[in-house]
Nucleic acid binder design. Sequence first.
DNA 1: CTGAAAGCGCTTACAG
DNA 2: CTGAAAGCGCTTACAG
Lengths: 349, 349
Amino acid sequence: MSLKELAAHLGLSQTTVSRVVNQSPGSRRISPETQQRVLAAADELNYTPNALARGLRNKHSQTVSVIVPEISDGYSTTVLSGIEDALLIAGYFYFVVSHRHRPELLRKYPRLLLSRAVEGIIAVDTPLEEDLPIPVVSVSGHLRHKSVVNIELDHTLAAHYALEHLRSLGHREIAIIKGQRFSSDTQSRWQAIQRVARKLGITLHPKLVVELEGTGIGSEPGRAATVKLLGRQVQFTAIFAFNDVSAIGAIQALRDANLSVPRQVSVVGFDDIASAATNAPALTTVRQPLQEMGRVAAMTLLQLLQGESAGTLQNPIRVLPSFVQRNSTASVLQTARAQEPILFHETRG
Amino acid sequence: MSLKELAAHLGLSQTTVSRVVNQSPGSRRISPETQQRVLAAADELNYTPNALARGLRNKHSQTVSVIVPEISDGYSTTVLSGIEDALLIAGYFYFVVSHRHRPELLRKYPRLLLSRAVEGIIAVDTPLEEDLPIPVVSVSGHLRHKSVVNIELDHTLAAHYALEHLRSLGHREIAIIKGQRFSSDTQSRWQAIQRVARKLGITLHPKLVVELEGTGIGSEPGRAATVKLLGRQVQFTAIFAFNDVSAIGAIQALRDANLSVPRQVSVVGFDDIASAATNAPALTTVRQPLQEMGRVAAMTLLQLLQGESAGTLQNPIRVLPSFVQRNSTASVLQTARAQEPILFHETRG
DNA sequence: CTGAAAGCGCTTACAG
DNA sequence: CTGAAAGCGCTTACAG
């Protein structure tokens, strides 16, 4: 059922019918009776305007895209659920694409999306190389292009929560699991940790710093990093992990090495994904307000599409972490280690 | 950069340029030199065809939609990751919408999507009321419309895995947590459980059957159902939960009631979402090949879009579960209960 | 080997 | 108060 057919059916012009179904300005002067007739017929004949034609004519597609590293992880999807709320209310639909850290996908997706006439892009934890001709909002992406508005967590506060918590529990030998090189948050989080550690008088021994490697998903990279850490034979009583999945992996590795969490080693995660609360043990973690970050990102993009300039908005837009204390951390005084030193190298295969 | 501009730049007609950039049949007879010139210019001037115009003209948008109950849960997103692989390779993009079990969204989304000219829909665990004029593939949706191809798990085998496992461990008093009324899998899974229980000689006491209630996400509904179960003061040594998140909730409720899993109560989940393995205790569960189900759904939809008729395809397409034994189940002989009866009503508030 | 022209389904400036 | 016509950016049947 096209507009033309509907108009023919009513004995009216497409112009008139278009005006009333869209309640466009021009519809103000159309007689109420005609309006009723049109609306009734549109409803009865189940007329739905063709969004392709409308988009072509109006030069806007009411479509945006969300680009994420991986659709199946808890991080991206929590952000997505926040994005969806704001977007669908505004009448926008969105394409989801995931690049899985593959450089060729990162390169070609922006162009592909442009050819799909998306009006804007939300990039989640994704480094976008080129400066795009459409508005971009970046969540945890730390992009420095003019047209990009960044939504960023306050990493200093985040680091403060975690390190101060561990320090107050008596931990001094704290291992850090840094993020993968390709993860946008890795640098800023690591810098914040160094800054805060210095302020708190905590020394970060280089041998107690490992980084996640590879594009593996789930807890595997965290497990591998922790195995490597244990292999270095340097004493530690706590681990601050880059994110919850790697904290979960770290706990697996510690358990495999017969180290009890939190009795012998405390572990702090990051993100507070859904499974953090149900993990064994339940994860003490720095919570990112992921859903809120998604909602803010979507609302910001909507503003940009409304014509707001990226320059006039606050940029970056900061969001605040919170701290969730559960069962993966404990006082170092209560650990076995306080009684008898644990020789980590004993645990090596 | 439009086709018209590109053509003007080259001193050629739109027809010719269109033919070569699309390598359409007509391009066979265009001189190699012209082809080279066109391709070079297109590349240099960064020409990207307007997908809206192309879709309007060709009557296909190269777009489909995936409709899920909830974007932020592990189930939908694992299916989504399987869908994405197959779809993007074929040059299709997809809109994601989530209905969150809200009837008005379930009613209006199909129309909205139709007006967006989507060529097909993949419905994940979602009941679609009307028969749509485009191909629909349903994952765990159990839809019975002519135009719908269903991807369905073999629920009989799934029930067999779980119940036979529990029976072999000595469990006789097995509680069942059924799914929410609105969940498409609820009926078929429950029927399979009854059938298999009968075959295995297991009696399902009506008082040991509870159902998940409400649209709450995460583990909360499973926890609430288990609290209700405990309140009924009927003896049981095992729970077969509708899915992993409710199994996780059940374990929380049992722990709150001072019942140890698996020492006093065994719990079997369903799905094998990512957090099943890292839960405390790690979940014994019936695994659905969710990613494969997504991939099969996408490939099937692609076939239908290629003109294959739903009638000629196998329907439903069955996929097989597998069984993953972890630490949430144990032999009933080793339980405390074997020595001394546990009075569940003692645990009530 | 190449092109002029029609038409996909809309919206809107212009006219009456 | 209503409509005829142009045009958004494409593709393709038809013509030469």
